[in-house]
Amino acid sequence: MPKAPERHPSYDELAALVVRQMATIEAQRETIARLEETVDRLTARVVELERRLGRNSGNSSLPPSSDMFVRPDKKSSVDTGKKRGRQPGAPGAGLAMVESLDQVEEHVPDTCGGCGKALSVADSIGFARRQVRDMPRLP
């Protein structure tokens, strides 16, 4: 099979092709410039929104009720192996018993609360000392 002679484009065809490509390149440049502006605007918006999201009651003057998405992490406490509250052997902070009492009242039941049998002083198995402080009523 004989080869067809190759046809080369004319100068006018090449010039028209270059003009079309130049127009396409210019349109692409305009599109790229618009997209870069959009990216810059959206990047600034993301930075502002992340700044707002990072604010909570722990790092700003906002009230705790304004914490919307996540609660701030609790500070991790170091486990010392001790239970909460007063430790065994620590001094107490309650009111101490007074040495001289103003009044002493003995509360001795007449009958047993379970069987109803009459009780005497000989049936006593001990006593418990308690101290009550009455506060005066305010006028």
Rank of each mutant, 00 (worst) to 15 (best):
1 M>E: 10
2 P>Q: 11
5 P>V: 15
7 R>D: 06
7 R>L: 09
9 P>A: 12
9 P>F: 08
10 S>M: 03
10 S>R: 07
10 S>G: 14
11 Y>G: 11
11 Y>V: 15
13 E>K: 04
17 L>N: 14
19 V>K: 15
19 V>A: 15
19 V>P: 00
20 R>I: 13
20 R>M: 04
21 Q>C: 08
22 M>I: 05
23 A>I: 10
23 A>P: 05
24 T>D: 07
24 T>Q: 14
25 I>S: 10
26 E>S: 13
26 E>Y: 05
28 Q>W: 04
29 R>Y: 00
30 E>Y: 00
30 E>K: 11
33 A>Y: 04
33 A>L: 05
33 A>S: 12
34 R>K: 13
35 L>A: 12
35 L>N: 13
37 E>L: 12
40 D>N: 14
41 R>Q: 14
41 R>H: 15
42 L>N: 15
44 A>M: 11
44 A>N: 14
44 A>V: 09
44 A>C: 08
45 R>P: 00
49 L>D: 14
49 L>I: 12
50 E>N: 14
51 R>P: 03
52 R>D: 13
52 R>K: 10
54 G>M: 02
54 G>Y: 05
55 R>S: 09
56 N>L: 05
57 S>G: 12
60 S>A: 10
61 S>K: 13
61 S>L: 08
63 P>S: 14
64 P>V: 02
65 S>Y: 09
66 S>H: 03
68 M>W: 00
70 V>F: 11
70 V>P: 00
71 R>V: 02
71 R>D: 09
73 D>K: 11
74 K>N: 12
74 K>M: 14
77 S>M: 07
79 D>I: 06
81 G>A: 07
82 K>D: 13
83 K>E: 02
85 G>L: 02
85 G>E: 05
85 G>F: 01
86 R>I: 04
88 P>Y: 02
88 P>A: 03
88 P>C: 04
89 G>S: 03
90 A>W: 07
90 A>P: 00
92 G>D: 10
93 A>E: 08
93 A>N: 06
93 A>F: 05
94 G>I: 01
94 G>Y: 10
94 G>E: 13
95 L>G: 05
96 A>E: 09
97 M>P: 15
97 M>R: 02
98 V>L: 04
99 E>V: 11
101 L>R: 04
102 D>W: 03
104 V>A: 02
106 E>V: 04
107 H>S: 12
108 V>R: 01
109 P>Q: 03
109 P>W: 01
110 D>F: 06
110 D>Q: 11
114 G>I: 10
115 C>R: 06
116 G>N: 02
117 K>A: 15
117 K>L: 00
118 A>H: 10
119 L>I: 04
120 S>C: 01
120 S>M: 01
120 S>G: 10
121 V>P: 00
122 A>S: 13
123 D>A: 05
123 D>Y: 03
124 S>W: 00
125 I>F: 06
127 F>P: 00
128 A>F: 07
129 R>W: 02
129 R>S: 07
130 R>A: 09
132 V>Y: 09
132 V>C: 08
133 R>G: 03
134 D>P: 01
134 D>L: 10
136 P>S: 10
136 P>C: 01
136 P>M: 08
137 R>L: 09
138 L>S: 12
139 P>W: 04
